[in-house]
């Protein structure tokens, strides 16, 4: 049987040093490879022209660079693009490119499918297929046609990033390290539903921003929307955040999808003010976009604005996130699910 070939893209400098050591190449070759992979953006080992012919030969015998372009793209009238990249078992992952006047944000996936089963999420309907490697996460950034324009990266695509802690942390290291993409951690946000042990590791080992999916301040209500509440309660999540010194640069935000007649009452405002008291944070309100099969409905604009004003009156910094790409299956998981259905 043919030996499965390994890929270079997505390896840290330390891992590249192990590679060159095994191949009997000088240690400095690792830094040269990292430079070609992450700064000079080559797509083949042959292009690494400052490596000896012998080194390139040894590398090419065992490794591929490991980049692959998007399989499909849909473009919204508002400029948002949703890319599909091939993943495991004939499935697809989604990557959303969201251009604004000064910001160009990429929303990347961290898993193929998702285990978390949130009631409002369409990715959950695909079940869970597997974790993306650091290389597969970073490939969504590097292989994007708009790669050079990107200013911000958000881990808010398919999957729960902290259920793939190793892959996500490795990708963050490469994104922010000098040997890698050298991006500022202030330009990167990782979003979680609150897997507490992994979130603590992230808070300790990374300086990127954190976003937590909140959606209800009440345990029972949140439990019905997000089964994770059974395992790690919002209380545990907030306690972990409170116990961690965040500094002035790091931002904590709470994502709050507003559902019609469900989670925007004065009672919710009061409880949010109570539980978030003392945490320097902001709340991002998102209008729910119904996905097939959910019993939840979208609120109207007035509801969103009223809720925002009420939260602000309690001293909570609140924004309403603009809905983007509604004409291209923008809700996470919709497009990739559609793509893998028989035609």
């Amino acid at each position: 049987m043919e030996e499965k070939r390994d890929v270079l893209f997505g390896k840290t400098l330390k891992q590249l040093e192990e590679v060159v050591k095994k191949l009997g190449l000088p240690r400095f070759t690792a830094a040269q490879i990292a430079d070609w992979l992450y700064k000079k953006e080559v797509t083949s080992i042959e292009e690494m022209s400052n490596l000896s012919r012998d080194a390139r030969g040894k590398l090419a015998a065992r490794f591929d660079v490991g980049l692959s372009g998007p399989a499909k793209v849909q473009v919204s009238v508002d400029g948002t693009k949703k890319y599909l990249f091939r993943a495991l078992n004939g499935k697809f992952i989604e990557t959303a490119y969201i251009p604004e006047r000064k910001r160009h944000t990429l929303c990347v996936s961290s898993q193929v499918g998702c285990k978390m089963g949130c009631l409002f999420c369409f990715t959950a309907k695909q079940g869970f297929q597997g974790n993306l490697s650091a290389g597969e996460i970073l490939n969504q950034i590097r292989s994007l046609p708009e790669s050079d324009l990107l200013t911000n990266i958000v881990y808010m695509g398919m999957g729960e990033p902290f259920d793939n802690l190793d892959g996500v942390m490795q990708s963050l290291e490469i994104l922010t390290a000098d040997f890698g993409f050298a991006m500022s951690p202030k330009r990167i946000t990782v979003s979680t539903i609150g897997i507490v042990p992994a979130m603590k590791v992230f808070l300790e080992q990374s300086t990127c921003h954190l976003a937590v999916s909140l959606h209800s301040p009440f345990e029972e209500e949140r439990r019905r929307l997000m089964p994770i509440e059974h395992v790690y309660s919002l209380n545990d999540v907030l306690e972990a955040i409170r116990s961690f010194p965040l500094g002035k640069q790091r931002r904590i935000s709470f994502e709050y999808i507003v559902f019609k007649d469900l989670n925007h009452s004065p009672k919710h405002v009061k409880e949010l003010a109570r539980i978030l008291n003392g945490i320097r944070c902001r709340i991002n309100l998102l209008r729910f976009h119904p996905v097939p099969g959910t019993p939840l409905n979208a609120p109207d604009e007035e509801t969103l604005v009223t809720f925002k004003t009420a939260l602000e009156s309690k001293g909570l910094v609140t924004t309403i996130r603009k809905s983007r790409g509604q004409d291209i299956y923008a809700a996470c998981g919709l497009l990739s699910t559609k793509e893998q259905q028989p035609g």
């Binding site: 499918g113 998702c114 285990k115 978390m116 089963g117 009631l119 959950a124 309907k125 695909q126 079940g127 869970f128 089964p227 099969g293 959910t294 019993p295």
Partner: peptide, 15 residues
């Protein structure tokens, strides 16, 4: 059980 089962059964029950 598996995420797929949970989501499929939940959808059916709601339906």
């Amino acid at each position: 059980g598996s995420a797929e089962m949970v989501v499929d059964v939940r959808d059916l029950l709601i339906e």
